[in-house]
Amino acid sequence: MRSDQHGLLRLLHLPKGLVLRLSAYTGLAFLHLPLVFIALYAFNDNSAGYSFPITGLTLRWVSLAWERDEIRAAIGLSLSVAAMATFIAMVLGTLTAAALNRDRFFGKNAFTTLLILPIALPGIVTGIALLSAFKLMDVTPGYWTIVIGHATFCVVIVHNNVVARLRRLPARLWEASMDLGADTLTTLRHIILPQLGTALLAGGILAFALSVDELIVTTFTAGSDKTLPIWLMGQLSRPRDAAITNVVALAVMLLTAPLIILAWRLTRDGDAKPNTR
């Protein structure tokens, strides 16, 4: 037992943590395995969609997918919902960040919890709650009901990004501006907002990406409208159409991936500024 343990330990303590490095890279590879295969299958010559090994590559499915009106309609709806939800989330998220970054006030903790609730509770709870409220008020589900659902859980994304930046802004920036004679609004416009710029943009991008990809809440609030994820969900019961589904799945990933990388760069650069405290 004792010597066994030693053998294991020696293994774990190979030069420079080889085992650790291996398991870290294996974990990372695991995260990308399905994505790589979706990208590959989008060009699969065989229309079965999942057969392996792949016999040949083709661009046929890409052009066929682009000709489908329902796909373009779904992309259009997803993008316009995301744009509107992001706009609302950026306004509300900035306001909450500005408010919660200030002194303590009554109910501050409760309000923070309220912000997190839409993402801490399972999406199905938010979805059904919204649906039952819409039904009660006789609202027909459609564009605006989807937007309301998305904006609700996007606020916290923007909020987190902006509040992180606000905390790093030294109070002396505000004070210096006021000392030099600028009033509150001028300081806000010329000093605070430019400092928040990249954080706000990053938050907005992440909110946009979240909205484009959201499925669970949307299934309840969309009525008969089809966003891109809802269209994809419907495709799962049409295995004959798998080749087209693969292409759209790849397109969705290519749509959000650059946004995520951009948001990451924006927050990293902004938060790594040397003179921010």
Binding site: P34, I38, Y50, L215, Q235, A249, M253, T256, W264
Partner: peptide
């Protein structure tokens, strides 16, 4: 970081679908 963030933010339904294929 990017390697973890990309799959995290990739569409839920695309990932679920990819696994049905795999």
């Amino acid at each position: 970081f990017v390697g973890v963030m990309l799959p995290m933010w990739a569409s839920y339904i695309v990932k679920a679908y990819a696994w049905t294929v795999l």
